[in-house]
């Protein structure tokens, strides 16, 4: 994905100049290797069953949706730790608003939740100059606490069939709606980062903030927008959780921030800004989903899964960084 990262031009020059740096492709190789290993070792457990594979997609979509936005945040040199908590809060506000005013109001309430947290994250980061790490660590707690408080720690059922179908439970023929959501975010994110002026400015802001400012890029505005984008994507992920489980719960999305950041970094996005690839992120997210699924089918209990997942992620990133 070098052409995304470095914003290379089209035309003959690109083919001439790109050295095949295999490290950029480690996530794709890793994905295939892990897939093949599971396909061989787990052939008796139905790993390759189309239903199981679609299940992996269903379980991964929320992470993927948030990770696409996280790619922008990291590329701009910031971080957003609040995404999981925002997803949980949005699932609760959406469920409550659907109960009060129907699905449309519910969706608007969910998006408004994301918008509000995003403005707080972005505003505090860019206007006051707090590091986004601290701001979003704080809003993580605030969002999770608010979700617990307004739901009184209870699950809030979502009874709208239309909402549940659109946001997570439905199938279009053999294709789960969640797969469509993932595809839409992947394509839109890829185009936004790779083909638009906004995407270039995001990479410039993270790659060299001072030079970007001297070049007339409104780096504060860009950072505000990526943090807003991240919270909105988290709100969408929260609605997808609510639609899939037919309820809003404060616990939804707990710990997702780590999977989301891991997906982006596995995919080749730099934690330090300036380098990002949406396609890599999607593959990174699918890889994490694949690992989770395979470890369950292997019969590992939850504690072992956590350990194995951590080890695999360290290995993947370490191989990618080795000189």
């Amino acid at each position: 994905m070098a052409e995304i990262v470095k914003g290379a031009p089209t035309g003959p020059a690109r083919r001439r100049a790109l050295p095949p740096d295999w490290r950029q492709y480690v996530v794709y190789v890793g994905f295939v290797v892990i897939f093949v290993v599971f396909a061989v070792t787990l052939r008796d457990t139905g790993f390759l069953d189309p239903n199981n594979l679609l299940n992996i997609v269903r379980q991964t979509t929320m992470i993927a949706v948030m990770a696409v936005a996280m790619t922008f945040v990291l590329s701009a040199g910031e971080i957003d730790l609040s995404v999981g908590a925002v997803a949980g809060l949005a699932s609760v506000t959406t469920a409550m608003a659907i109960a009060a005013g129907g699905p449309v109001v519910g969706v608007l309430a969910g998006l408004a939740t994301g918008l509000l947290v995003g403005l707080i994250n972005g505003g505090l980061t860019t206007r006051i100059g707090m590091p986004s790490f601290l701001v979003t660590l704080a809003t993580l707690g605030i969002a999770r606490g608010t979700a617990m408080w307004i739901s009184q720690t209870a699950a809030i059922p979502v009874l709208s069939r239309g909402f549940n179908f659109t946001f997570g439970s439905g199938n279009l023929g053999p294709v789960p709606v969640l797969l469509v959501w993932m595809a839409v975010f992947a394509v839109a994110g890829h185009i936004l980062l790779r083909r638009t002026g906004f995407g270039r400015k995001v990479l410039a802001s993270g790659g060299g903030e001072v030079a970007a400012r001297y070049s007339g890029v409104d780096t504060a505005g860009i950072k505000l927008r990526v943090l807003l984008l991240s919270s909105l994507a988290a709100a969408v992920a929260g609605m997808l959780y609510a639609g899939r489980l037919h309820s809003g719960r404060f616990q939804l999305g707990e710990g997702d921030e780590l999977s989301v950041i891991a997906a982006a970094v596995l995919g080749g996005t730099s934690l330090f800004g300036g380098v990002g690839t949406v396609i890599g992120t999607i593959v990174g997210a699918l890889m994490i989903g694949l690992i989770n699924n395979g470890l369950i089918l292997l019969g590992l209990d939850f504690s072992q899964q956590l350990i194995a997942r951590g080890v695999i992620i360290i290995l993947a990133v370490a191989i990618g960084r080795q000189k």
């Binding site: 470095k6 914003g7 290379a8 638009t196 270039r200 790659g207 060299g208 030079a211 970007a212």
Partner: peptide, 27 residues
């Protein structure tokens, strides 16, 4: 201040004019 060193010559050459090189947001 002048350059984003890690990024390509192309990306650097087009950064200040990226909006002028875009149509409806697309480069």
């Amino acid at each position: 201040q002048g350059l984003i060193l890690e990024q390509s010559v192309f990306a650097n050459l087009t950064l200040p004019t990226i909006d002028r090189l875009s149509r409806r947001g697309f480069v």
